[in-house]
C-alpha cells in the first residue's frame, strides 16, 4: 500500500517525541568530560627539565621554549605555546617523560584578540646563583616560579569565562 512507509516513519517520530532528551542546556549544564580529554595545556614548570622533546614532537612547531643552563642542568625560563597553530594531537604530551605537560579539561579558549590566544605556560627568571647555592636558589625559584605564571593563566581563564 502506498503511504505505508510514511505512516511508519511518522510512528517513529511520534515515539521519539516522547523519548528522553539527548541534548543539555549547555552553559547551565555540561556533559562530563573524559579523563583523556584534549583541553588546554597545563605545565608543571618545576617538573620540566627543558629537554625539548615536546617541542620536537610537535608537527607544527607550536611550542617555543627558552632555557638557560643553571649548574649542570637546563632550567626552563619560558614556555610559550602558539596555540593558534595547535592541532591538539597530543604528541607533545605523549612525548613528555617527566609528566610535566598535561591536558586539562578547559575547552573554552576563545579570545577576542589574536594576540591573547598565545598560551604562556611558564615565564620566570633563571636563578642567577652559582652552582654551590643551587639547592637554595632552586627552592627560591620554585616559590617565585608560579607567581608570574599564575596571572597569565588566571587572566586567560577569566577571559575564557567571560566569552
Amino acid at each position: 500500500m502506498f503511504g505505508k512507509g510514511l505512516i511508519k516513519g511518522l510512528q517513529i517520530t511520534w515515539r521519539e517525541m516522547l523519548a528522553q532528551k539527548v541534548t543539555v542546556q549547555y552553559p547551565d549544564e555540561q556533559i562530563p568530560l573524559p579523563d583523556r580529554y584534549h583541553g588546554r595545556f597545563e605545565l608543571d614548570a618545576d617538573k620540566c627539565i627543558a629537554c625539548m622533546l615536546c617541542a620536537n614532537a610537535c608537527p607544527n612547531k607550536v611550542i617555543q621554549i627558552e632555557r638557560t643552563r643553571v649548574g649542570k642542568k637546563q632550567y626552563l625560563t619560558k614556555y610559550v605555546m602558539r596555540i593558534e597553530y595547535c592541532m591538539f594531537c597530543g604528541l607533545c604530551v605523549e612525548s613528555c617523560n617527566q609528566d610535566a605537560l598535561r591536558f586539562s579539561k578547559v575547552f573554552n579558549m576563545n579570545q577576542y584578540f589574536r594576540s591573547r590566544v598565545r598560551l604562556t605556560l611558564a615565564d620566570r627568571p633563571a636563578p642567577a646563583e652559582e652552582p654551590a647555592e643551587e639547592a637554595g636558589s632552586e627552592q627560591e625559584a620554585k616559590k617565585k616560579a608560579p607567581a608570574p605564571k599564575k596571572p597569565a593563566g588566571a587572566g586567560s581563564e577569566a577571559a575564557a569565562g567571560k566569552s
Binding site: 573524559p34 583523556r36 580529554y37 584534549h38 592541532m87 591538539f88 594531537c89 597530543g90 604528541l91 591536558f103
Partner: peptide, 12 residues
Amino acid sequence: FEMLTGSRMTVS
C-alpha cells in the same frame, strides 16, 4: 572516541 583518545574527530 573522546573517551579513548581525548578528541572526538581528530583522533590521531
